[in-house]
């Protein structure tokens, strides 16, 4: 009976826990030329839901545009100004990611050059295909993407040292409290006994001098 209850209980919980909540919001944003690419998710590995609105602002809170989260928590944005970009993603329930892309990471394509701005140098033999700067950046970005993801996850992960450190702090604070309380008690005790000593001393003096002439009526 009890076993069956526990079994049902577990089954029920498993059936409804669909991973809607998690703790920390993590994310990253990177620029390849003026193409901005970012991703947002939770520290437990879930990514932001597709279709979530991404608002783009500059440092003064002015709107620069908006985009939407696509597959795997990724989003794309084409920067038209070389200024600080902030990407604000509200994933509801108080989970807000605010990602910052500094102005100097954005390189706008040169206006005068033709679209694509091919860096075809004269000294490169024609056998090797000319690569645009953008293509190189894209290739490198693709290669280091898993590394960036791993690094972000690692940074968000609390480690054992932190846990032990926190417990140590809590016990330390308690120790301080107990020490303080002890000190107060000791102080109270000291003044109390001091008072007793003075009164007993006074009584003795009165006794000693009770025979004195001047005190007699």
């Amino acid at each position: 009976m009890v076993n069956r209850f526990i079994y049902c209980f577990c089954a029920f919980i498993i059936s409804i826990s669909s991973g809607a909540y998690a703790h920390n919001v993590i994310g990253g944003v990177y620029a390849i030329g003026n193409q901005v690419e970012g991703e947002v998710g939770f520290s437990n590995g879930d990514m932001a839901k597709a279709g979530t609105l991404v608002q783009v602002e500059n440092g003064n809170g002015e709107r620069l545009g908006e985009t939407q989260i696509g597959d795997d928590g990724m989003f794309f944005f084409t920067a038209s100004k070389a200024e600080d970009h902030y990407f604000v993603v509200d994933m509801s329930s108080g989970h807000i990611a605010r990602l910052h892309l500094p102005a100097d990471e954005i390189t706008l394509p040169e206006q005068t050059g033709s679209a694509g701005s091919v860096v075809s140098r004269v000294d490169i033999p024609s056998a090797t295909p000319a690569l645009t700067a953008q293509q190189i950046e894209q290739a490198v970005a693709r290669q280091i993407k898993p590394l960036r993801q791993e690094l972000a996850a690692y940074q968000a992960k609390a480690n054992l040292q932190n846990v032990l450190g926190g417990i140590g702090y809590i016990f330390g604070i308690c120790g301080l409290g107990i020490w303080w309380q002890n000190r107060q008690q000791k102080k109270a005790h000291m003044t109390n006994s001091h008072f007793q000593i003075t009164t007993s001393h006074l009584k003795n003096t009165i006794k000693e001098h009770s025979g004195d002439e001047c005190l007699k009526p």
Partner: peptide
């Protein structure tokens, strides 16, 4: 303090 660090796996998620 520690409880929120210990995530127990439960179905697809953890609590």
């Amino acid at each position: 303090f520690v409880a929120s660090y210990i995530h127990l796996p439960l179905g697809f998620s953890s609590v």
